[in-house]
C-alpha cells in the first residue's frame, strides 16, 4: 500500500493513520482506526449509514477521502456517550424501540445530534427533513421521529 499519513482527532482523541489516497474516510475509519460503528450501506451518499461529523459538520464519510481528514476533528457514534452514561438520544432510541435491525442507528444518532445541536426544538417536519438523508428500512421512521422528539425535550430540560 502506498499510503499517506493522516493526523486527526477522533472523538476527542489524537489519531494517526496511513491510507491510500483514493481510500474513503469511511474505509479508513472502519479498517484502519477500527471504528466499525460507522456503516456502509451504499457508498454513494444515499443512505446516511456512514454519517459522521467532520469539523462539526454532518457529512457522509463515504463521500470524503481519508486524506482530506488531515488536521480535522471527527465525531462518530462511538463518541456520543459520556464515559458513564448514554446520550439522551441513545437512551430515547432504546426507550422508544426506535431501532429494529440497528444498522442505520449510528447514522441516525449522529444526524439527529447534528440537528439538535443546531435546533433545540425542531418540529416534526423539521426532524423528518433533517433525517431524510438517513434510510431506515425496518421502522417506517415512526418510532425514530418520536425518539428524537423525546430526546430534544430531555436536552431542553437538562439545559434549564
Amino acid at each position: 500500500m502506498t499510503g499517506v499519513l493522516v493526523d486527526t482527532t477522533v472523538n476527542g482523541d489524537a489519531v494517526q493513520f496511513a491510507c491510500p489516497t483514493d481510500e474513503t474516510l469511511l474505509d479508513s475509519l472502519r479498517d484502519r482506526v477500527g471504528l466499525t460503528g460507522v456503516k456502509e450501506g451504499c457508498g454513494t451518499g444515499d443512505c446516511g449509514a456512514c454519517s459522521i461529523t467532520l469539523d462539526g459538520q454532518l457529512v457522509c464519510s463515504c463521500l470524503v477521502l481519508g486524506v482530506e481528514a488531515n488536521g480535522s476533528e471527527i465525531g462518530t457514534v462511538e463518541g456520543l456517550a459520556d464515559s458513564e452514561s448514554l446520550h439522551p438520544l441513545q437512551e430515547q432510541f432504546i426507550n422508544h424501540a426506535a431501532l429494529q435491525c440497528g444498522i442505520c442507528t449510528p447514522g441516525f444518532l449522529v444526524a439527529a445530534k447534528a440537528l439538535l445541536d443546531k435546533n433545540k426544538d425542531p418540529s416534526e417536519e423539521q426532524i423528518r427533513y433533517a433525517l431524510a438523508g438517513n434510510l431506515c428500512r425496518c421502522t417506517g421512521y415512526d418510532k425514530i421521529v418520536r425518539a428524537v422528539q423525546a430526546a430534544a425535550k430531555d436536552l431542553r430540560k437538562k439545559k434549564k
Binding site: 471504528l35 466499525t36 460503528g37 457514534v77 462511538e78 448514554l86 438520544l89 441513545q90 432504546i94 444498522i103
Partner: peptide, 21 residues
Amino acid sequence: TRVNRPDGVDKVTGRAKYGAD
C-alpha cells in the same frame, strides 16, 4: 410489557457487530 431490548446499548453505541464488522 414494553421492556428495553437486550441488544439496545450495543446498537446505539456502535458496538454491535454486523456482517462486515
